[in-house]
Amino acid sequence: MTGQYEFKSKWLPYLLVTPQMVIVFLFFFWPAAQAIWQSFFLQDPFGGRLIFVGLGNYSRLFTDPLYAYGDSFVVSVAFAACVTLVSMVLALFLATQANKKLRLGSFYKTMLIWPYAVATMVAGVLWLFMFNPNVGVIAWFLKHKLGVEWQHLLNSGQAFLLITIAASWKQISYNFVFFLAGLQSVPKDLVEAAAIDGAGPAKRFWRIIFPLLSPTTFYLLVMNLVYGFFETFPIVHQVTGGGPGKSTSILVYKVWRDGVINLDLGGSSAQSVILMVMVIGLTILQFRFVERRVNY
């Protein structure tokens, strides 16, 4: 950026950013500071008693098997990675297909975008219905036609698979829109020139289109990881409730469960501080290292 505008008055720029800063302070810094503060205490929910425990809330997260925080961490990372991978790969495939000249092309596109209009909670319910071990259509099909016993209420692998499917399905549409837009902005003459030079469809895709899509891919990578880590809460809440056992209790679900349901304010605050650090870390890492290799 060049050509900066200089303010004549000293206080005007501060005045102009004040509303924004007030909002950021009230809705971000204030609660974040409270979470940090609360994470050093054990607290009676009604605020009657406050016991300073230092880093006790943090250490019990990592040392106490009751919290199984390490397991929750591993599940969250695996889940976010799977959702990101599945939804991005499928969306890219669908976008390249839909980008071709097709009869009823816009119909397909509309259909593919549709799931995004479904609320995350509802997406969870839909998939739960189909996979319900007792009355679900897919569960019935698996059992009676393929001989696969579907019981995600007790089989932790199946539970993980189910939330991954539900969360990815919802996110494919979002990725699809961005990939499609990205594909449409790839200059046609570049692709045609490559074709004339003898590059086959696969080579054209990997050598021309995919690198040109990298800003979109990078953006989606960030958004999908954030989605996988933080916005899939309703799906876990609806589909598995963190079970069987604690096997699908991802971090955001756990922080809510411990804070809101179990009223463990100190432990829940410590978890939210960890999540906060994670988001900050994730953002820095991605902008520092991944963005450098991206061609805009």
Partner: peptide, 16 residues
């Protein structure tokens, strides 16, 4: 609440 949750979780682990 959390005691009941522990019971639910462990019961599932027993059945599994």
């Amino acid at each position: 609440n959390i005691i009941r949750e522990i019971e639910d979780q462990t019961w599932e682990d027993i059945l599994a």
